[in-house]
Design a protein around this nucleic acid. Structure first.
Length: 317
DNA sequence: GCTGCAGCAGGGATTAAGAT
DNA sequence: ATCTTAATCCCTGCTGCAGC
């Protein structure tokens, strides 16, 4: 299989979102957050200049790591020799898994220093700029629509997280229209995000997690594996994938989704810590596990802050 | 082998902004 | 005024990895 997007009629293009977890350290200057420029155009130009400054040396398949990536990288083996794996990256755009890249940090998810931006419009314009940029390997399709245009007889299965789905929505919509058989375009991802994408979507929610295993982090990639492995010869039919997803959701235990524990106030958490820590000094991790096992909830970082707070008060007392 | 913890992305509740 | 959509915040538990 070549990485040009031009392939045999039965090719199955699988596109997965990238992951923040990298196997090699990311240099500071290849963190999107390191850019001083806030204006979108100059910022993008500065970013691609940095990416293009010298020869990248690590293939995308070896760059990413973690649970999500392991599940994603295994998807082609579910489909067989006709599968070609692509990465939807906030730093590089659409790249084949064999493309050489630099270790970088950029994400469409909000709330990190390396976020592309906040608003949907900003994310979409960034994705469009990436599509217009030639990228690290000349001649490759740079967008979903280009992938579909070059290979209209193929199937495309996109496994997308929420933020990436927002960024690529227009591109996905346009790509679906380019395939000769519209049923061969499926987006496995979160439902109810955009009404105009619903007909392309194979909806996956946390309800499926007990069926597919793993953490939320890898939910979509694991669900994609689960669905495609059960689709028989019809591995990329959106209709078929939807049927299986619906059956799986119905078969999932009714309480399969996590039952949130009782949320405690800061003072209640501190009181819990003080009570449990009165004999010996269990660690924050041990105490948080114990708290959750007791049917209560507290977010990890908040718990750590309160733990340190309670412990320092106990020392001073 | 065990422990501690950062990283992660979807879910749900709430709020803000925009459209009708 | 009401409805819809987008954004924001905080939550969860699993995983991987470093350190002991």
């Amino acid at each position: 299989m070549t990485a040009t997007g031009k392939a045999s009629p039965s090719t199955v293009h699988i596109v997965v979102t990238c992951t923040n977890r990298k196997q090699v350290p990311v240099p500071e200057h290849l963190r999107l957050g390191d850019l001083r420029d806030r204006q979108p155009g100059p910022r993008f130009a500065a970013w691609t200049r940095r990416l293009s400054a010298d020869e990248p040396a690590i293939a995308a398949r070896d760059l990413y790591g973690g649970e999500h990536w392991r599940a994603a990288a295994g998807l082609p083996s579910v489909v067989g020799d006709s599968a070609q794996l692509w990465v939807c990256s906030a730093g590089y755009g659409l790249v084949s898994v064999d493309t050489l890249l630099h270790p970088y940090a950029a994400t469409f998810s909000a709330g990190t220093p390396d976020s592309v931006g906040r608003g949907v419009g900003e994310l979409q314009r960034w994705w469009q700029r990436l599509a217009d940029w030639p990228g690290p390997m000349r001649g490759q399709p740079r967008s979903f629509v280009e992938l579909a245009r070059r290979d209209p007889e193929a199937s495309i299965v996109a496994v997308m997280s929420e933020a990436y789905l927002r960024a690529c929505a227009e591109d996905l919509r346009a790509a679906a229209a380019k395939l000769s058989d519209p049923d061969r375009f499926a987006v496995i991802g979160p439902p109810r995000l955009r009404s105009d994408l619903e007909d392309l979507l194979v909806p996956v929610t946390a309800r499926l997690r007990p069926m597919v295993g793993g953490s939320l982090h890898a939910l979509h990639a694991k669900a994609a594996t689960y669905l495609m492995a059960r689709a028989g010869g019809d591995v990329t039919s959106r209709k078929r994938l939807r049927e299986i997803a619906q059956q799986a959701a119905e078969a999932a235990p009714a309480d399969g989704s996590r039952k949130p524990g009782v949320r405690l106030s800061d003072e209640e958490v501190r009181e819990y810590i003080r009570r449990r820590a009165s004999h010996g000094r269990p660690s924050a991790t041990v105490l948080l596990r114990s708290l959750r096992d007791d049917g209560m909830s507290c977010e990890q970082s908040r718990f750590k802050r309160l733990y340190e707070n309670a412990v320092s008060r106990a020392v001073l007392a």
